[in-house]
Amino acid sequence: MARETVIDLASPYQTGLTPADYRKVGAKKAIIKITEGTSYTNPDVRHLINQAAEGGVTGFSFYHFGRFQSDSQAVAEAKYFIEQAKKIVNPQPGTLMILDAEIKNMLTSSVVAFLNVLRDAGFKTGFYTYKYLLPSFNLEKIHQYMDFFWLAAYPLGDKPAGTSPDFNYFPSAPYVDAWQHTSRLLGYSLDGSITVTDNGNRLLSGPTPAQVKPAPKPQPKPQAKNTWVDDLGVKWYKEQGTFTITDPMGIWLRWGATTKSAKIAVLPRGAEVKYDAYCYSGGYVWIRQPRGNGQFGYLPTGEAKGNKRLNYWGVFK
């Protein structure tokens, strides 16, 4: 199997990483912290996703830092994790959702209770802990309720490490799918892991989550039958067609027709976008993509000067 680099993202530790930093690291998979206990939600989840995705990360999973020491509290924390995740990233059934178990005196029965809530909600379940804490858990019992096992052990301690760890120091334990081997990947304040099973590669390959609560979009004001001016003063023209991207780098689809609008996803070369209107705004020619439920995506299709197109990033038909 091909081993892959995996990164662990949380606030505030990795919020300063740029797309260029992510490209340097070269990871295609990231696991992002959503919650801790029943009162903390990561405020930077969308920022971390957007920066990582722009830097080349394509697979996203999510984790909760457990604070529970009873079965009932475990259930409450699992429900909080799911509730907050749905508000921010709306994980689809089958998404890998992981318990970070690194506090002392956490009961095996409580870990099982937590994982059961996740599994009953339709998610794949993951269990993470440190090698030194592993003897305090009944791994055979937990294994029945987890789909993914992520184990941490740092052979270099706090020293910077590369993306290819020395497997002479592999934390020998059954069922390991990914090994977190450093907290200083390439010298960054960044936990780095490596996959060791095909199961790990598959479960960590979840897609980039869509924005759940997009910023309010300009509402059109009827002006004429086939044109209107939105709240930003941009004139839109009604037109239906299909745009096929030819730019080899792809184009970002956004929740608004500005380069500062929240990103939905990068659409690759060859992707087809059906649209119902176009406009000239901010030096680009934009098209509007109907997405259902009254929502629209907005895609720049080339540069413009005023109302004159300068080039094309794709083909219209």
Rank of each mutant, 00 (worst) to 15 (best):
Tyr22Val: 05
Lys87Pro: 04
Leu115Asp: 02
Leu118Arg: 05
Lys28Met: 04
Gly55Leu: 10
Val112Gly: 07
Phe114Val: 09
Asp44Val: 02
Glu36Met: 14
Pro93Thr: 13
Ile88Pro: 00
Thr38Ile: 13
Lys79Thr: 11
Tyr63His: 13
Gly122Phe: 08
Gly37Asn: 09
Ala78Glu: 09
Ser110Pro: 03
Ala76Gly: 13
Pro43Ile: 00
Leu115Ser: 05
Ala85Phe: 12
Gly94Arg: 07
Phe114Thr: 04
Lys33Cys: 08
Lys33Thr: 04
Val25Trp: 03
Gln14Val: 11
Gly56Ile: 03
His47Asp: 04
Val6Trp: 04
Asn105Ala: 12
Lys33Gln: 07
Ala30His: 00
Gln84Gly: 09
Lys29Asn: 02
Leu118Phe: 10
Phe62Trp: 12
Thr108Cys: 01
Ala20Trp: 15
Lys86Val: 15
Thr41Glu: 05
Gln73Ile: 02
Tyr22Lys: 07
Gln84Tyr: 08
Gln92His: 12
Phe114Ser: 04
Gly26Ala: 06
Ile7Glu: 01
Gly16Lys: 15
Asn105Phe: 09
Phe65Thr: 02
Arg46Val: 00
Leu48Cys: 06
Glu36Lys: 14
Tyr13Glu: 09
Leu118Lys: 05
Leu9Pro: 06
Asp44Glu: 09
Phe68Leu: 06
Thr95Val: 12
His64Leu: 15
Tyr13Ile: 13
Pro12Gln: 05
Tyr40Asp: 04
Leu96Arg: 07
Gln14Leu: 12
Thr38Cys: 12
Gly66Met: 06
Pro91Arg: 03
Val6Ser: 08
Leu107Glu: 01
Leu17Lys: 02
Leu115Ile: 07
Gly122Asp: 08
Ala113Trp: 00
Val6Lys: 06
Ile49Val: 11
Asn50Ala: 13
Lys29Ser: 01
Ala121Asp: 07
Ser109Phe: 01
Asn116Thr: 13
His47Arg: 12
Ala101Arg: 03
Pro43Asn: 01
Ala74Tyr: 09
Lys29Ile: 01
Lys28Asp: 03
Leu96Glu: 06
Asp44Arg: 01
Gln84Ile: 11
Phe68Asn: 03
Lys28Ser: 08
Thr95Ala: 13
Ser72Gln: 10
Glu4Cys: 10
Pro91Ala: 12
Leu99Tyr: 12
Glu36Asn: 14
Ala74Arg: 08
Ala121Glu: 06
Pro12Phe: 08
Val112Phe: 03
Ala101Met: 14
Ser39Asp: 14
Leu118Gly: 05
His64Arg: 14
Ile32Gln: 00
Gly55His: 11
Leu118Cys: 10
Ile31Lys: 02
Ala113Gly: 03
Lys33His: 06
Asp71Asn: 14
Tyr13Asp: 11
Pro19Lys: 15
Ala121Met: 07
Val117Tyr: 05
Thr18Lys: 15
Lys104Ser: 06
Ile103Arg: 11
Leu9Val: 09
Ser72Ile: 05
Ala113Asp: 02
Ile49Glu: 00
Ile32Thr: 00
Gly59Met: 06
Ile34Trp: 03
Ile32Cys: 00
Ser39Pro: 08
Thr5Cys: 13
Ala78Asp: 13
Val111Lys: 04
Phe68Ala: 02
Ala27Trp: 03
Ala76Ser: 14
His64Pro: 13
Leu96Thr: 09
Ser39Met: 14
Gln84Glu: 14
Phe62Gln: 06
Leu115His: 03
Asn116Phe: 05
Phe123Glu: 04
Asn105Gly: 07
Thr18Cys: 15
Thr15Trp: 03
Ile88Lys: 00
Ile88Trp: 00
Gln73Leu: 06
Lys29Leu: 06
Lys104Cys: 05
Ile82Ala: 10
Phe62Thr: 04
Ala85Ile: 10
